[in-house]
């Protein structure tokens, strides 16, 4: 295994993770809700009621870059050229898979990965093992098996 020490950022990763855990604790203690982003979004696009707290949480997510611009270094904002048509389609399909998959599995990296593992849930452990495995696998195929095929 070849570790990229030059891009390894252990302290900001731990601190960022701790903020995510703090946010999950606030939402649980104040609102009685699990901070699972896919579930919160699914409730917004599907559920008839119960939208107010979800909208408030998503507004906070969307406003975070504004606040980050004041308190975090500029390099937290990546830049990218506008994606072309082929790239846009690839991203759309990827997003579709993320949406379908997290709805079927009832959770994503936050709901299963952070909150579920913090609750010591066996279902979440299984979900994390499978989605990490699938993600490692697809990146391996795209980068090392199909050279020149994108990403």
């Amino acid at each position: 295994m070849n570790i990229a020490w030059s891009t390894f950022t252990p302290w900001s990763a731990l601190a960022g993770g701790a903020l995510i855990g703090l946010a999950a604790s606030v939402l649980l203690l104040v609102n009685g809700r699990i901070a699972g982003i896919s579930g919160i979004l699914a409730g917004l696009v599907r559920a008839p009621g119960d939208r107010a707290w979800r909208l408030a949480f998503v507004s906070g997510l969307l406003a975070a870059p504004l606040v980050a611009g004041l308190v975090l270094p500029q390099h937290v904002f990546p830049t990218a050229l506008p994606p072309g048509i082929q790239e846009t389609l690839r991203l759309l399909v990827a997003g579709l898979l993320v949406g379908l998959g997290t709805r079927m599995a009832n959770g994503c990296t936050s709901g299963h990965g952070v909150c579920g593992l913090a609750r010591l849930s066996l279902r979440s452990l299984a979900a994390v093992a499978v989605f990490m495995g699938a993600a490692f696998g697809v990146v391996f195929v795209v980068r090392h098996v199909l050279p020149g095929a994108g990403a």
Binding site: G95, L96, L97, V98, G101, C108, A126, F131, A134
Partner: peptide, 18 residues
């Protein structure tokens, strides 16, 4: 199955929902 589909999409885009 859902987690496998999610992992595929995450690995293709580099983005999870949040």
């Amino acid at each position: 199955i859902g987690s496998a589909l999610f992992g595929l999409g995450w690995g293709l885009a580099g983005f999870c929902p949040g």
